[in-house]
Write a protein that binds this DNA or RNA. Structure first.
Length: 266
DNA sequence: GAGCCTGTTCGGGC
DNA sequence: GGCCCGAACAGGCT
């Protein structure tokens, strides 16, 4: 379930190989995930590239190599990153792998909505396009003033699809958006324009809170959030709201399955 | 076998 | 141009 914290957790697997030198790159010959990479070009490029760092921003990941160049990864719906030993043999649904004398870094994705892309660079500094991405909700740069100005021209939007816009709330996905709205006590089908000042402040605070806590809980070791989270109750029909003890409702809003508590959210 | 799905992009309609 | 919706992508799971 790759949203903000799950992405961070997956990235940590590859980050663990920091300092290793990779002398072999592999990609599935029929993969759809590596469209920006030429297979032969890649093999010659990876004669010796040392992993110098791994970064995440929202649902995006960037891995840097000391000799120059960056590998960008997006997990899509079902992607994952693993680190296996150096004699690992590629399995079904593996699309991309890097091998060092110590380990194999694998990108796996059954549904192939994910993406692996290579960005050439001679600079060691992170690319400009990466550095200038909009601030993540859990960062200090994501202030209430910024939140307000960001939403100025979106007054007609429904809250649920609004939260899913990666240009505004990088890293927030379907379950996080539901968690945020439930904690802010706002129905997912409310329009932004209908919110009063207190509700806007709530939406801002709960967005930051859910992103911060998800990273602490899930990002560290993939622990599940406590039972007091909507997360634990939202996946199937018939779930019970942990606050009101009444039934949760599930319906499609903005094209996505949404779960919310009519007794709590107005 | 049918229906559902944690993400993104694209095309069409308004 | 903005916004909304549905479809498409492909396979696992219930």
């Amino acid at each position: 379930m790759p949203e903000l914290a799950e992405v961070f957790f997956n990235a940590s697997h590859w980050k663990a190989a920091q300092g290793e030198s990779f002398d072999f790159a592999w990609m599935h010959e029929k993969t759809r995930c590596c469209r920006l990479i030429d297979g032969r070009e890649l093999e010659s490029r990876f004669e010796k590239l040392t992993l110098s760092g791994g970064y995440t921003h929202g649902k995006r990941m960037l891995f840097a190599f000391r000799q120059g160049g960056f590998l960008e990864v997006h997990l899509g719906m079902t992607g994952s990153l693993l680190r296996a030993d150096s004699n690992y043999e590629e399995e079904r649904y593996d699309h991309f792998a890097l091998r060092s004398p110590h380990s194999t870094l694998v990108f796996r994705d059954p549904r192939q909505f994910g993406k692996v892309a290579w960005h050439s660079s001679r600079e060691e500094a992170l690319p400009d396009w990466w550095s200038s991405l909009p601030p993540e909700p859990q960062s200090e740069a994501f202030t209430f003033e910024r939140f307000e100005s960001m939403l100025e021209r979106r007054s007609g939007s429904l809250l649920k699809p609004l939260l899913l816009q990666q240009a505004l709330f990088p890293g927030v996905g379907n379950w996080m958006a539901d968690e945020i709205l439930w904690r802010a006590r706002l129905r997912p089908d409310r329009r932004l324009t209908s919110l009063d000042d207190v509700e806007r402040r709530q939406l801002y605070c709960k967005t930051k809170w859910v992103c911060e806590r998800a990273l602490e809980i899930i990002g560290k070791d993939y622990s599940d959030p406590p039972k007091s989270w909507l997360f634990q109750h939202r996946w199937k029909d018939g779930g019970i709201c942990p606050v009101s003890k009444k039934e949760l409702r599930r319906e499609t809003i903005g094209g996505r399955t949404s779960c919310w508590s009519p007794a709590v959210q107005v």
